Amino acid sequence: MKVMIRKTATGHSAYVAKKDLEELIVEMENPALWGGKVTLANGWQLELPAMAADTPLPITVEARKL
């Protein structure tokens, strides 16, 4: 699914347009965010693609819901 990742004042957030859902990312498998699992505030887990740590945000990526 397409997910937009952006930086907020409190960390990172994910927006899933198909579900009209925006949630804070509360847990990251990798400190650089990319190439691992993230957990959203509502409990969803997404697998993000591997990208460079300095990838500019906001960005829309293809993520997989676990």
Score class of each variant (00 low, 15 high):
61 V>M: 03
29 E>G: 05
14 A>Y: 11
40 L>Q: 01
21 L>G: 06
53 A>F: 10
32 A>Q: 14
6 R>N: 11
33 L>A: 03
19 K>E: 15
30 N>D: 06
5 I>Q: 00
12 H>M: 11
48 L>R: 00
51 M>E: 03
22 E>P: 05
39 T>H: 06
27 E>M: 11
24 L>N: 12
26 V>S: 05
64 R>A: 09
42 N>W: 04
63 A>T: 07
51 M>A: 03
13 S>G: 07
31 P>D: 11
26 V>W: 05
57 L>P: 01
16 V>K: 00
52 A>S: 11
61 V>T: 05
43 G>L: 03
28 M>T: 11
4 M>Q: 14
20 D>Q: 12
45 Q>M: 12
31 P>T: 10
29 E>C: 06
6 R>F: 14
7 K>G: 06
4 M>R: 12
59 I>H: 08
63 A>E: 03
55 T>L: 03
47 E>F: 13
39 T>W: 12
14 A>P: 00
36 G>I: 03
10 T>E: 12
65 K>E: 11
48 L>K: 00
25 I>R: 00
19 K>M: 15
41 A>Y: 05
64 R>Q: 13
10 T>G: 12
38 V>A: 03
64 R>M: 12
7 K>F: 08
38 V>C: 03
31 P>Y: 07
36 G>M: 04
2 K>F: 13
10 T>I: 12
28 M>R: 09
15 Y>T: 11
32 A>P: 03
45 Q>N: 06
45 Q>I: 15
19 K>S: 15
12 H>G: 01
28 M>G: 01
6 R>H: 09
24 L>C: 10
24 L>S: 11
66 L>D: 05
3 V>N: 02
45 Q>H: 08
17 A>F: 15
56 P>M: 11
5 I>A: 00
24 L>F: 10
20 D>E: 11
4 M>Y: 08
53 A>I: 10
28 M>I: 09
36 G>R: 01
55 T>G: 02
33 L>V: 07
57 L>M: 08
16 V>M: 13
21 L>P: 02
18 K>C: 15
36 G>N: 03
1 M>S: 04
5 I>C: 04
27 E>H: 13
18 K>F: 14
26 V>P: 02
57 L>N: 02
17 A>W: 15
63 A>V: 14
61 V>F: 06
35 G>Q: 06
13 S>N: 06
15 Y>F: 11
49 P>Q: 04
26 V>N: 03
17 A>D: 09
59 I>T: 07
21 L>N: 07
5 I>H: 01
25 I>V: 07
58 P>F: 07
30 N>S: 11
23 E>S: 15
9 A>D: 11
62 E>H: 12
9 A>N: 10
60 T>D: 06
61 V>D: 02
56 P>C: 07
57 L>E: 03
63 A>C: 11
45 Q>D: 06
33 L>P: 03
16 V>D: 09
42 N>L: 01
25 I>S: 01
12 H>V: 09
51 M>S: 04
58 P>T: 05
1 M>L: 13
21 L>M: 13
33 L>Y: 02
8 T>K: 07
60 T>R: 04
15 Y>D: 01
45 Q>C: 10
43 G>N: 04
40 L>A: 02
5 I>V: 07
62 E>N: 12
57 L>G: 03
55 T>F: 04
32 A>E: 14
8 T>S: 10
37 K>N: 08
22 E>L: 13
11 G>D: 00
7 K>R: 12
47 E>N: 08
6 R>Q: 11
13 S>P: 02
57 L>K: 02
34 W>M: 01
23 E>P: 01
39 T>G: 01
63 A>R: 00
10 T>H: 13
13 S>I: 12
35 G>V: 02
38 V>K: 00
13 S>C: 13
29 E>R: 04
53 A>V: 11
44 W>L: 07
43 G>H: 04
14 A>N: 01
19 K>A: 15
46 L>T: 00
16 V>Y: 14
35 G>I: 03
36 G>V: 04
57 L>F: 13
7 K>D: 03
59 I>A: 12
52 A>D: 13
65 K>C: 15
31 P>I: 07
20 D>C: 12
14 A>R: 01
4 M>G: 04
49 P>Y: 06
15 Y>P: 02
39 T>N: 03
51 M>K: 07
5 I>K: 00
60 T>S: 09
5 I>E: 01
48 L>G: 01
32 A>L: 13
45 Q>G: 03
1 M>Q: 06
48 L>H: 01
43 G>V: 03
6 R>W: 09
8 T>W: 06
62 E>W: 15
50 A>H: 13
56 P>R: 10
46 L>G: 00
41 A>K: 08
38 V>F: 04
35 G>C: 04
41 A>Q: 09
31 P>F: 07
31 P>R: 07
27 E>L: 09
65 K>P: 12
9 A>M: 10
33 L>T: 02
35 G>S: 03
54 D>A: 07
16 V>W: 15
13 S>E: 07
50 A>N: 13
63 A>N: 01
37 K>Q: 07
43 G>K: 02
66 L>I: 14
57 L>C: 05
32 A>D: 14
49 P>M: 05
19 K>Y: 15
20 D>W: 07
7 K>C: 08
23 E>W: 15
2 K>L: 15
34 W>S: 01
7 K>T: 06
1 M>R: 02
55 T>H: 05
26 V>H: 04
61 V>R: 00
35 G>R: 02
55 T>M: 06
16 V>C: 14
33 L>E: 02
47 E>T: 09
27 E>I: 09
49 P>C: 06
4 M>L: 13
56 P>K: 12
56 P>N: 08
5 I>G: 01
30 N>F: 13
65 K>V: 15
12 H>T: 07
34 W>T: 02
21 L>Q: 11
32 A>V: 09
63 A>D: 01
66 L>A: 09
45 Q>V: 15
37 K>R: 13
30 N>L: 09
44 W>D: 06
53 A>D: 12
61 V>W: 01
16 V>P: 01
61 V>Q: 02
36 G>W: 04
9 A>H: 10
13 S>L: 11
63 A>Y: 07
60 T>L: 11
2 K>C: 13
35 G>K: 02
33 L>S: 02
6 R>L: 11
64 R>I: 14
38 V>M: 05
5 I>W: 03
50 A>L: 12
30 N>H: 12
30 N>Y: 13
42 N>M: 04
56 P>H: 08
38 V>S: 04
48 L>N: 01
49 P>R: 05
34 W>K: 02
2 K>E: 14
14 A>W: 08
34 W>V: 02
16 V>T: 05
14 A>Q: 02
60 T>Y: 10
8 T>P: 02
45 Q>W: 08
49 P>D: 02
64 R>C: 11
66 L>E: 04
30 N>R: 10
40 L>V: 02
45 Q>Y: 08
4 M>D: 08
25 I>K: 02
24 L>H: 11
9 A>P: 12
1 M>N: 04
30 N>V: 07
38 V>I: 14
46 L>R: 00
65 K>S: 12
1 M>K: 02
11 G>T: 03
62 E>K: 09
17 A>G: 10
55 T>Y: 04
49 P>G: 04
